[in-house]
Design a protein around this nucleic acid. Structure first.
Ligand SMILES: Nc1ccn([C@H]2C[C@H](O)[C@@H](COP(=O)(O)OP(=O)(O)OP(=O)(O)O)O2)c(=O)n1
Ligand SMILES: [Mg+2]
Length: 427
DNA sequence: GCGGATCAC
DNA sequence: TATGGTGATCCGC
């Protein structure tokens, strides 16, 4: 495994013994179905990389020069759209679920805490005491426990998180009622007008917000990033985490200097796989990304190229999504899924699917939404995921229609060849 | 339109 | 012993 998920830098994990983490994770995981599935996916990525490299090597010098010129032209075109006029803040709570739990049980503050449904489930987050051991979100509880035997598990309690979230949002609304709620613990706030009207700065507002959020939530800390786009503000929110802030200057110079040595993995939208692909082309930082723009143009799709070039230049996401056509839409899906002890028992799987599809339909009714498509998700005991979908005659939130479609989709798969042993179903 | 894959949180 | 749940997007066909 290239292991980037559990070993790459995250706030509060700068001094972690990464060798030890990698070893413990590997020892606990090697040979398991989950690990087999991970290596299968990695092989697929290797193949993808090989195809990209072959494409690059098959190109003539002239072709490369053309890509170079075109990439430069795209960069110049993007530069013409550069604007440092907007002011965005991103607020992100520190160790959110764990910090909420500490409010209700202050004794947890001094011990390592992981928030998970159980030791064989994965952690939704860990407090900063636990992070020193390499314990973090998305890590299975039993591995976290190996890294940190004193780890205390706390079960997630969403009521607490929704309450704290609402309290913090009350603060954000004071600066812009049209703030964008990312998740429960994160918000994008455009303060361009507020700064004008009140003759103030992002720095000052960030200080205020941090103080007011702490007050409003009864003690939760957050970190704030600021910049001239949502993308830059977002990456800055992590820069001085926890309980810190970083405001990036808004000139081209400020931005390119900041990006030059910033690992690409820090940017929203670049995950473990894309990081690995970029690394194969000797791209580790956003600065590398800019330097290798010709390679990017030659090997990635136009959309992916634009995305990467935007990251390299620090351009894009300056405006409120409301100002763009795509951004103004509402919710696009409702789903329920559940993991259980793997089984091929058709009666059990049918009952589970019926239960979940019913919940989806009722949730749609509650939200006053109708769906044009029903999809089911099946995860085999080998961890590979199968999705099947069907487009309905017309939009519906009728329980019978949705349940029957879901059952048909699942049974159809389950009748092909041998019965599947499943560990998860969803609709 | 469908299915696989990736990503964020 | 054991690896979550929800929502979204993109790509290739
Ligand atoms: N794989 C994940 C990641 C996060 N979360 C939940 C729990 C987190 O508390 C919350 C916020 O996610 P963050 O990425 O902001 O992480 P934290 O707030 O926990 O820590 P940090 O201080 O790094 O922001 O979302 C989750 O359920 N599953
Ligand atoms: Mg957070």
């Amino acid at each position: 495994s290239y292991g980037s998920v559990f070993t790459h830098a995250k706030a509060g994990m700068e001094n972690v013994d990464r060798e030890r983490v990698a070893r413990v994770v590997y020892d606990a995981t090697v040979g398991t179905p989950h690990h087999e599935n991970e290596t299968r996916k990695e092989r697929a990525t290797s193949k993808r990389i090989a195809a990209m490299k072959a494409k690059g090597q098959g190109m003539t010098k002239t072709e490369w020069e053309t890509f170079g010129r075109r990439a430069d032209e795209r960069a110049r075109a993007m530069e013409r759209t550069r604007s440092g006029a907007r002011k965005w803040l991103v607020v992100d709570m520190d160790g959110f679920y764990a910090a909420c739990e500490e409010l209700y049980d202050p004794a947890l503050k001094s011990v390592p805490v992981g928030v998970a449904a159980g030791p064989s489930s994965v952690l939704t987050t860990a407090n900063y005491v636990a992070r020193k051991y390499g314990v973090r979100a998305a890590m299975p509880g039993f591995i976290a426990k190996k890294l940190c035997p004193d780890l205390v598990f706390v079960k997630p309690d969403f009521k607490k998180y929704v309450k704290a979230s609402n309290e913090s949002r009350g603060v954000f609304a004071q600066y812009n009622p049209d703030y964008i709620a990312g998740s429960l613990d994160e918000a994008y706030i455009e303060v361009t007008e507020y700064c004008e009207k009140h003759d103030t700065t992002m720095e000052a507002i960030a200080e205020e917000i941090r103080s007011k959020v702490k007050e409003a939530t009864g003690g939760l800390t957050c970190s704030v990033g600021g910049g001239c786009s949502r993308r830059l503000a977002k990456v800055c929110s992590d820069f001085n985490k926890p309980n810190g802030q970083y405001i990036l200057g808004t000139t081209r110079d400020d931005i390119l200097k900041f990006l030059r040595d910033l690992p690409v993995r820090k940017m929203y939208g670049i995950g473990k796989t894309l990081e690995r692909i970029l690394n194969e082309f000797d791209i580790k930082t956003c600065g590398d990304l800019l330097a290798k723009r010709a390679t990017m143009l030659a090997l990635f799709t136009p959309k992916a190229f634009d995305f990467l070039l935007g990251i390299a230049l620090g351009i894009g996401t300056e405006c409120h999504p409301r100002e763009t056509p795509e951004g103004s839409g509402g919710r696009k899906g409702v789903s329920k899924s559940e993991t259980f002890k793997a089984t091929a028992d058709k009666a059990y799987l049918d009952a589970k699917m019926t239960e979940l599809a019913t919940e989806v339909a009722l949730e749609c009714q509650r939200l006053n939404l109708k769906g044009r498509m029903v999809a089911v998700k099946l995860k085999r005991s080998t961890f590979d995921v199968i999705q099947r979908q069907t487009t309905l005659a017309g939009p519906t939130n009728d329980v019978k229609t949705i349940v029957n479609s879901a059952l048909r989709l699942m049974r159809n798969e389950n009748s092909i060849g041998a019965n599947m042993t499943l560990r998860l179903v969803g609709a």
